[in-house]
């Protein structure tokens, strides 16, 4: 399964896009994800909305509210991912909080991921120390649990990077997700440390919104992750966001690929 993830980072810097499943509705979010892929995204993170997303800023919180109001559930998110998978071979990963996964049942959740062709899971509230309870089950289904490294990780980088699977999510800044005008963290120092211990590619996310930032960040890492800037277009254009998402995604993908 992870072959798909590795391939996304082969011979180029990867552009990773995030959108929330069911935001603002099932069909529109399918169109948005396809627009993202057709514009050149190398990997798509599909958010399963959660009632209390503690690592998200206001933009993605808004997406979670809209999606849950629209009736999105874990089962419907699987349906959406399956529909996307029928159209593409690029890697798909879910991004959600641990409770929806725990409640669904680890074996049932990762089994379903494998069956549909979802390659990984990002869980911001499952740090390295708490990963074991799900990790073995995920591995047995060939699904990667993507680990995160933060500006505060310091000496923790070694253990996290050595055990990383799929790719590493490098959190650019303190705080929650959201558009930032400036990223102050010394990311080259973090990347140097990551590269020393990790066998998997590393992509930088949190706060990246413009092609200029995407280019700058891609130059430091193996790829960039953009979420809030895309979700903001859904907030603004509602059911008709797909063309706008396509436009921004193309600019971001070109910037990342050119870095």
């Amino acid at each position: 399964m992870s072959n798909r993830i590795a391939k996304a980072f082969e011979n180029k810097k990867a552009f990773v896009g995030f959108l929330t499943a069911g935001d603002p509705a099932f069909d529109a979010s399918y169109d948005n994800i396809m627009a993202l892929i057709n514009a050149g995204a190398d990997l798509v993170e599909i958010g399963i909305p959660f009632s209390d997303p503690i690592a998200e800023g206001p933009v993605i919180q808004g997406a979670d509210v809209r999606a849950l109001k629209g009736g999105m559930t874990t089962d419907r998110a699987f349906e959406l991912a399956a529909k996307v998978r029928s159209q593409t071979d690029i890697p798909l990963v879910f991004m959600t909080y641990l409770n929806p996964v725990f409640k669904y049942g680890y074996d049932r959740f990762f089994g379903k991921c494998a069956e549909i062709g979802v390659d990984g899971l990002i869980c911001p509230d499952m740090p390295f120390e708490e990963k074991q309870e799900a990790d073995g089950i995920a591995r047995s289904h060939g699904v990667s649990i993507i680990s995160m490294i933060a500006p505060t990780s310091e000496e923790r980088i070694k253990a996290i990077a050595e055990n990383a699977e799929g790719f590493l999510y490098i959190v650019s800044s303190l705080g929650v997700t959201g558009v930032r005008s400036e990223i102050k963290t010394d990311l080259s120092a973090i990347m140097e440390s990551v590269k020393k211990y990790s066998k998997v590619p590393a992509a930088i996310g949190f706060g990246i919104s413009s092609p200029e930032q995407a280019k700058k960040m891609s130059a430091l890492a193996d790829g960039v992750i953009v979420g809030s800037a895309l979700v903001r277009l859904v907030e603004k254009f509602g059911e008709n966001a797909a063309p706008e998402i396509g436009k921004l995604a193309k600019a971001l993908a070109d910037a990342a690929h050119g870095a």
Binding site: D125, T152, S153
Partner: peptide, 21 residues
Amino acid sequence: SKGRYGDFGGQYIPETLMNEI
């Protein structure tokens, strides 16, 4: 030692907070 009461408890928080905790 890991802050567990039986199976309850733990430290399910974002990586950013782990060193601080």
